[in-house]
Each structure stands twice: as structure tokens, then as C-alpha cells.
Design a protein around this nucleic acid. Structure first.
Lengths: 340, 340
DNA sequence: ATGATGTGATTAATCGTTTTAACATTTGTT
DNA sequence: AACAAATGTTAAAACGATTAATCACATCAT
């Protein structure tokens, strides 16, 4: 039973000290004047390491150096398609940058979010990417305050000093509304919900701003109490009765329920009422080429967030100043393409 | 700048040795005769630990004990809805059992799968849950052979001695086919693809078996070369021309393309041709209450796999014998319910 | 009184790295 | 030639836990 081979084995076989092996393996400052290892020694060590497929023990490394090369990601729900896709991109980035990712879901529950963060911190992560939920500000604040690099994703907490990567939801909403106006619709309403989170609030103000800009004073934002199907259905039916020409749904789940209501009651797009939303779904692509939606730059979300986070990790002084990255939205019509 | 507090701090404050603190914290064999700590001492240690919110450093613990309390999960693609939902359940189970989960995607590429497994092993996981892909047998074999507990999920590799948790795909396919026969269809065909993976092969044999059982000799399994939309579309159109009464799609992606083809060419379900598949989609629920599909027991997948894996981790002797868990399928009609 | 047994707690080695400080050796400068 | 600076390399001390071995003491049967 040959057990795992260690740095000592390599050092012995290469005829050098463990320190040298460590220097070579973690080729810190390689190329700089600081890196002082004779090329032939380096070659010898590398050869031995390769021969035994030596990989430094990450626990030992983490224990000694305090670097984990692990990122914690807390989403509201990883089974939500949007977050699942972001997770995929984050994982991909991490894989290519020698990081490893822990995923957790908050269920939109601040207590759960706080617990998951604690578990991650305790487990040892160098930083966290968080999709904040309603009421999670203090927990996140505490975590960031304890020195943990944190980047908010998708949603920002207005007024709070966190680094974040979010879509320009305001602009997206403006473009979307203007597009609808451009198609000749005048009676446009929005279905949203009561929240303090930035992404939704920005979508609301974008709508109002664009309506005002178009000289349309008749605006309306519905904010159902529980956001369940019955409420959404009621709003849709009511809108139809009042001859609303277009409905904008601000969340993925509500837009799914909205589509269901449309279909159940035979509302056709675009003839009866136009349908616009902020996240695409297979369901829409498949059946309705005339839906307007915001194309989320999934990969960019992941890359920007990870890059920013890693920078904060590596340059603690930069971690103090908070950086807000705002991604450009793209508003498109459902492509009718099936992506597989 | 107060740094992380350690076991030594706790020991000092409680006036005991670090060993004692360790005993108390990891209350091994609590209750058994082995656990020899005076209750009042234990209480004192616990109080001090609570006071400082002490959490043992997991790197140090892992380094010394070899236990990571971390599971590696390698799926084909975490952004695939089915796997995203499984991930959610796995994460949930882990959270409640004090484990943490690393997720990775193989992209159905055995080389990538092998790399991700290596990264996970090197990072330190106690065991892995793997969705194998075509050609990954040797890599998984090697990993399992090196002593790493491994449980296959969703797909099994026929003939290989791996523990696994899979659906009874054969039975699902039989039920599905019988249901279609029961609805009066006789000309039923299947759209599958060339593979060695168990789940697909079982679906094929289930279909053939049920058809034979019903005395229907006219069977046909299509196996498109590249499984792209053009091929699927062609098969669907051809089937329509030949008055095929029902089509069974064996994979999620192909069923999406199939639906697309149905819709593009105005085929209605059930009037023109019936549609059956093995994974539900939002898209189907939303628009077609008459689709037949296999309801995958998502939570059971996760719970069974994790339970089995943890058992293998904790009882190395049991890890030798391979356990195959077969989950019961449920075949249902698209519910027309929107789940949010 | 003696040795055996049981109980509660401690000592110190160990896990596999990283990293600081020091040690040689070579090179460069005057 | 003498000393400084640069270049390679190493010894040894961490990092923060776990755990085998040991110890000190009390209890108890003989």
C-alpha cells in the first residue's frame, strides 16, 4: 500500500531540500529577481515531480499559507436556470484558473444565507460571490467586515458599500419599454413585487422613466402580495379586460406564471397583449418567437465577478475600495432557436 | 487585529490541554465508555468555545485526520435543468449533514471528467458522485481503484463494478410504452442515439420488450448520427409522413428539439402524433398538458447517492462491495402545473 | 499493603506544506 | 586582495488540529 507521495519524497529523490521543491512547485515570482533557483535544479525537481505525478497536499498548503484556492458561491437557488447557467460559467472560469468552487443556496432566506456563509468561511474559502436576498445586508456586512472578500452578483444592495457585478437593469428596462413604445404600444404595464433589492427597483424606475420620456402618463406597476399563480392570473385577466397592450414581467418565476396565464386563457402574443420579461426560458424560445426579453450576459457575469473577487483576494488593499461593475444589457426578441 | 482563534486559545482559557478541547469538540464515541471527560470539564470547554464562537480549522483537521467532510460531484453539465435540480438536493443534504460539496462539469468529455476528478482528489474530497460519460470508464476505474469512494449517478456503466444510483429505466420505458399502447397507439417509434451508457440502452430495451409483449412487431429505433436539430426534424417529418402514432425521445435535449420540430411543422399532440420523453421541461408543462414523461425522483437520487457514498466513506470495508440502487420510475402526463 | 482496574487529563509526535533567516558559494568592484 | 553584493540552497520553525502513549489518581478486591 503505497501512500500518497509528499514533498519530502520528491526532495529526497531530487537530492535537494523540501524548501527548494516548494519554491519550484509554487513558482512564485517566476521570472522576477526574487526567484533564485538554478535552471538545472529546477529541471531536475520538475522531472521527479512529474515522474511521480506529485501534487502538493492542499490541506497542508492551506494550513501553512492561509491560501485555499477555493471560492464560495451563494445563490438564491442553484436549480434556477439563470443561476445554474452562471454557476456553470463560474465553475468553468475557476477550473481554468486553478480554483475550486463551493456552491450553496440561500432560498431567499437571510438566515440560511448567513449559515451557508459561515460554513464556507469555516471550511476555508478565499472569497465569496453572493447573490444577496431580502434582509441579508447585515449578515453580508459582517462577513465582509471580518476581512472576507465579497462580491455581490446580479443584485446590489442600494446604499451599501459592497463590490458588485450587476446588469444595468435601469437601462435594460428603458430600452425594453422604448422598444415596446416603438412598436406602437401605449398602454404598457409592469408586474413586479415589493422589494429593496436593486435589480428589481431599477427595472421599475427604468420603466417609469421611459414611459415619461415617451410622454405616456398612464403607467402602472402591479406588486402582488404573494406572487403566486392566482394573483398573476388575476392581474393578467384584469389587464386583458382593460385592453392593456403590453405587460412587462420583472422576474423569471412571475414571467413563467404569466405565460401560463396567457396560454390558459388564450391570449396570443402579439395580437392580444404583448409579453416582455427579463430572463429567457426554453419555454419561450420554443413556442413564441415574438416575446421580448433581456438577454443576460451570463459568461460576463461570471468572468467579471471572479476576476474582481480574485483581485480583491490578491490585493487586500484594493479590497477596501468597493468596485461596482455594471454590465450592458441586450434586449432581443425570442430567437426561436433551440440551443443544445 | 485579532486573528482567528485556535484550539490553544480555548484550552488556555478553559484551563485544560488542547487534547481535551479536541475530545470535546469532536465528540467521538460520545456516550460510549471510550469518551472520558468529566461532565463539568466538558461544560466549561463548551462554554468557552461558544463564547468565542470557536470553529476548528478545517485545513488542520483535514491534514491531520485525513477527513475532509467534502464531497466532489461531477455532472455532465450543471446548467442542465435535471442536473441542476439534483445538485440542489445534493447541496441540501450535504448542508444538513455537515458536508460541503464541490461541483464540476465534464461536458460529456472523458478527458475533462478525468481532469476534474484529479482536481477534486488533489483538493481533498472524501468521496465522489459521478455522472459517467461515454468513454470515461477507465478514468473512473482508476480513481475508484486508488481507494476513492465513488458512486455513479443517473447512468451506470454496464458490466463495471461501480456502486450506482440509477432510475429503473427499463421499467420506465416499459410502462411508458404500455401506456401508449393502452391509449390505442400501435405504430410507436423511439428516437435515441448510439451509446454504451446504461440509462439509454435500458430505455431502448424497455421499449422493445413492451412492444413485443403487446404483440407489436413493427418497432423502430432511430439513432441520428450527430443528434442535431436538422436530423431530429427530418426524423419527425418522416415519421409524420409514415403516420407514426407516437414518438418516444430518450434524451432531454433531443426531446426539446423534437418539440421544436413538432411546433414548427404544426404537428399537434395528441391528434397528429403523440409525444413522450424521459425528462420534463418547463416548456412542456407550460404548453402541452398531454405529453407523457417520466418523472425523475430528484430528491431520492440525491439522498440515496449521498447516503450510499457516506456509508462507503465511513466503512471502507463496505466500499469494496458494489451496491446498485435502482429507483422506481413514475410515468405521468404533463401536469400543466407551473412550479415556482 | 499490594496490585489491578478505571477514570480523567496531559504530553508530545505527527500530518505536509510554506517561509524566514541563515549559510555557502560565486560574482563583481575597487 | 579584500570586501560587498548577488545567487543558490538549506535548516528549522511555524500552521492548528488529532491521537497514541503516558501519567496521576482514586477505587477496589484480595
Amino acid at each position: 500500500m503505497k501512500s500518497r507521495i509528499t514533498i519530502t519524497d520528491i526532495a529526497k529523490e531530487a537530492g535537494v531540500s523540501t524548501a527548494l521543491v516548494s519554491f519550484v512547485m509554487s513558482n512564485k515570482a517566476k521570472g522576477s529577481r526574487e526567484y533564485r533557483v538554478r535552471p538545472e535544479t529546477e529541471k531536475r525537481v520538475l522531472e521527479v515531480a512529474a515522474k511521480y505525478d506529485y501534487q502538493p497536499n492542499s490541506s497542508a498548503r492551506a494550513l501553512r499559507s492561509g491560501e485555499y484556492r477555493t471560492i464560495g458561491v451563494v445563490l438564491s437557488d442553484i436549480s434556477n436556470k439563470f443561476y445554474a447557467e452562471i454557476s456553470r460559467q463560474i465553475e468553468n472560469w475557476a477550473f481554468h484558473h486553478d480554483y475550486v468552487v463551493l456552491f450553496g443556496s440561500s432560498d431567499e432566506n437571510p438566515k440560511k444565507l448567513s449559515n451557508v456563509m459561515k460554513v464556507f468561511k469555516n471550511k476555508g474559502v478565499d472569497g465569496m460571490i453572493i447573490v444577496p436576498c431580502e434582509g441579508s445586508e447585515s449578515a453580508i456586512s459582517q462577513m465582509a467586515g471580518s476581512g472576507m472578500p465579497v462580491v455581490l452578483l446580479d443584485r446590489d444592495i442600494p446604499g451599501a458599500e459592497f463590490s458588485s457585478v450587476v446588469l444595468n437593469n435601469f437601462k435594460a428596462s428603458v430600452i425594453m419599454t422604448e422598444t415596446l413604445v416603438g412598436k406602437g404600444f401605449r398602454k404598457i404595464e409592469m408586474i413586479s413585487y415589493k422589494t429593496t433589492l436593486s435589480n428589481i427597483k431599477d427595472r421599475e424606475s427604468g420603466y417609469l422613466k421611459a414611459m415619461e420620456g415617451a410622454g405616456l402618463t398612464e403607467t402602472r406597476i402591479h406588486r402582488p402580495e404573494y406572487c403566486n399563480y392566482r394573483e398573476i392570473e388575476q392581474i393578467v385577466l384584469d389587464a386583458k379586460a382593460r385592453n392593456v397592450e403590453a405587460l412587462i414581467f420583472t422576474t423569471y418565476n412571475m414571467s413563467l406564471m404569466g405565460r401560463k396565464a396567457f396560454i390558459s386563457h388564450g391570449l396570443r402574443v402579439p395580437q392580444d397583449c404583448f409579453f416582455a420579461c427579463f430572463n429567457n426560458s426554453d419555454a419561450f424560445d420554443l413556442y413564441e418567437p415574438d416575446i421580448l426579453y433581456v438577454k443576460q450576459p451570463i459568461e460576463q457575469f461570471a468572468v467579471e465577478a471572479m476576476t474582481l473577487l480574485v483581485k480583491m483576494i490578491n490585493e487586500p488593499e484594493s479590497a477596501q475600495s468597493c468596485t461596482k461593475i455594471i454590465l450592458q444589457p441586450e434586449v432581443v426578441f425570442s430567437s426561436s432557436e433551440v440551443h443544445v
